[in-house]
């Protein structure tokens, strides 16, 4: 993602998360992990942001707000999904009041709004430790390569 050569500013959006991911995001900003050394800064409005940090499984009631916030982020935008809830729905992947993760959100965006999927990095973990979040951002910026990929083994 060569468009992000410089500092990225992020907007944090809780879409129904339990707070664990949110406090780890705050932790990343505090002295021990201090991501401001990379120029990463938390901003108060999606209009100022380059990237959207999403936490939580996207509850139905937060859906319209998530869409609004996502649309408010100027192009080129980046989505960083923090935590297993956002990546794959987590424990609530099939409950009545959640969407069950980011893939479902992208499906809604595509079908109902005709918006293509923005470049996305997913950081699984429950919650991901601060280092894992930094790693995810580094992956988004193209500093590191994805470490794992799908493997399929057939045995007798």
């Amino acid at each position: 993602m060569s468009v992000y050569r410089r500092s990225i500013w992020v907007f944090h959006l809780n879409t129904g998360s339990c707070n664990a991911c949110d406090i780890e995001i705050l932790d990343v900003l505090t002295p021990y992990h201090d991501v401001e050394r990379f120029g990463i800064k938390l901003v108060a409005s999606p209009r100022h942001a380059d990237a959207l940090l999403l936490t939580g499984p996207i509850t139905k009631e937060s859906l319209p707000k998530v869409i609004d916030a996502l649309l408010a982020v100027p192009e080129p935008k980046l989505v960083i999904a923090i935590g297993s809830c956002t990546c794959g729905g987590g424990i609530w992947y099939d409950t009545y009041s959640t969407l069950g993760g980011l893939n479902e959100l992208y499906r809604v965006l595509k079908e109902e709004y005709g918006i293509p999927e923005p470049p996305t990095v997913k950081v699984p973990g429950c919650p991901p430790r601060p280092e894992a979040i930094i790693y995810g951002v580094a992956l988004a910026l193209g500093i590191v390569k994805q470490k794992y990929s799908t493997t399929k083994v057939r045995v007798e």
Binding site: N14, G16, S17, C18, N19, A20, C21, D22, I23, G56, P57, T59, E61, S62, G90, I91, W92, D94, T95, Y96, S97, T98, C126, P127
Partner: peptide, 28 residues
């Protein structure tokens, strides 16, 4: 806004020893 259907989930899909993990995720 953060309702995730936890009580219903604990009463339906999960067994009593899986509920502690959901309970833990009521609040992080």
């Amino acid at each position: 806004h953060v309702h995730r259907g936890i009580e219903k989930l604990g009463e339906s899909r999960l067994t009593y020893n899986q509920v502690p993990f959901v309970a833990e995720r009521i609040c992080g």
